[in-house]
Design a protein around this nucleic acid. Structure first.
Lengths: 220, 220
DNA sequence: CACATATTCAATAATTATGTTGAATAATTG
DNA sequence: CAATTATTCAACATAATTATTGAATATGTG
């Protein structure tokens, strides 16, 4: 094999994988699957796609070996093939946030409209946990909480927060988190809690970012 | 703005960036630019593309803010916009090597045909440097060496290695490196050196991987 | 075994990406 | 200022990607 042929083949393989990632719907699916396993129907609902379209995009991801499947009865569950898939998504996300002012602006504008609360990073949360009294609040749907969550976190899904707010201690600072930096459940939680007199902030990143850093987690 | 609109816009922005990466030629350009600044002509020669085609792909990368340009006389030099671009390329590369058996096989077969020498990683090289006597050999073109190289490395471009081999010490183990894991200059160097009785191995990764890890480098 | 349900497939039309060719710019040189 | 050089642009043909529709599979249930 000549050097050029070798290079062409290598870069073509890598471009294939990259093409599989290079679609808004598929990136959204990947972020969703970073939370746990999901059926096609669930994915299509969460991402506002038709079932056939979701299935088609999942096939693309499967062909590129970015996701794996398990069958359970009539349902087929998809999951990320491995940690490197999330790492690559994270790298793309960070590249995007740094490069594209419009993303930062979108995020800021959207959050601002929901709440003026500031946020804190995973790094500063781990430092704070050593000294202060902090309640960590997971506002994702319950099944995502059960697939894995930050150690000692309390689960109150965002749509039940208004009713169950009283379960939370008024004295502690509350740090709400959800799926990732573009997930707005945590923003909504901070808005609700602040209005009710709690001291609340959101975690900038999401659960998968916490987990991939090797920080302590719990399952169930 | 509604939640769906917000999400759609965010994921579309990120997909735009990913699409800019999702092409074999553009990935090759990015790996080349990780070595230093280059003119369009140089890039087109190195990657076996027509000038117009290289220019077109560079425009795509520029629009996505993945590369920057400087004009110097009639030449226009391109460079990576920032470290995150290389980090993302690295993540994609690692995802690819792990996921796609065919890439690993391609690399192994190609190297095997050049030399049977084994290789070592950046991690093991840094450990070895503390104890053993090692000569680090940079076999990239001279201008890439001058744009930045591993501290104390010796520069002998691959096409001059046969003539200048005598400059190297026979006692030390020689570790040759080049642009990255898919670059074959280092393999060719190991083959030449081993034949001539030197003890030589290649570094698996390339100079940009060394630099991005914050390990000591020199310029000029 | 008929029926229901979850998912995939196939066909289509619209959009977007790609490489080639030759012309157009923009800076430098004589 | 004409000629030269490096790069970009515009136009075209071809190929790939996408969403939608409805039919086809494959598993589970009565």
């Amino acid at each position: 094999m000549h050097k050029r042929e070798f290079k062409t083949r290598i870069y073509n393989e890598l471009a294939q994988i990259t093409k599989a990632l290079a679609n808004a719907h598929r990136l959204e699916i990947i972020e969703l699957l970073a939370q746990g396993d999901y059926s096609v129907e669930h994915i299509s609902l969460q991402t506002d796609m038709s079932i056939a379209n979701a299935s088609q995009h999942l096939q693309v991801l499967k062909t590129a070996q970015l996701v794996d499947v398990t069958r359970n009865g009539t349902f087929i569950y998809y999951r990320l093939a491995n940690a490197n898939v999330f790492k690559t998504w994270k790298a793309l996300r960070e590249l995007g946030v740094e490069r594209i002012a419009s993303i930062e602006k979108l995020v800021k504008d959207f959050r601002h409209s929901k709440s003026k609360a500031d946020s804190l990073t995973i790094d500063s949360l781990t430092k704070k946990l050593k000294t202060g009294k902090i309640t960590i609040l997971d506002v994702r749907p319950e099944n995502e909480f059960h697939s894995g969550h930050i150690v000692n976190a309390v689960s109150i899904p965002i749509d039940k927060l208004r009713d169950r707010m009283k379960e939370l201690p008024k004295r502690n600072e509350i740090v709400a988190y959800c799926r990732g930096p573009f997930c707005v459940y945590a923003d909504e939680a901070v808005a609700l809690l602040s209005k009710a007199g709690f001291k609340a902030r959101r975690l900038e990143e999401g659960y998968p970012d916490w987990a991939i850093n090797g920080l302590p987690i719990e399952v169930n």
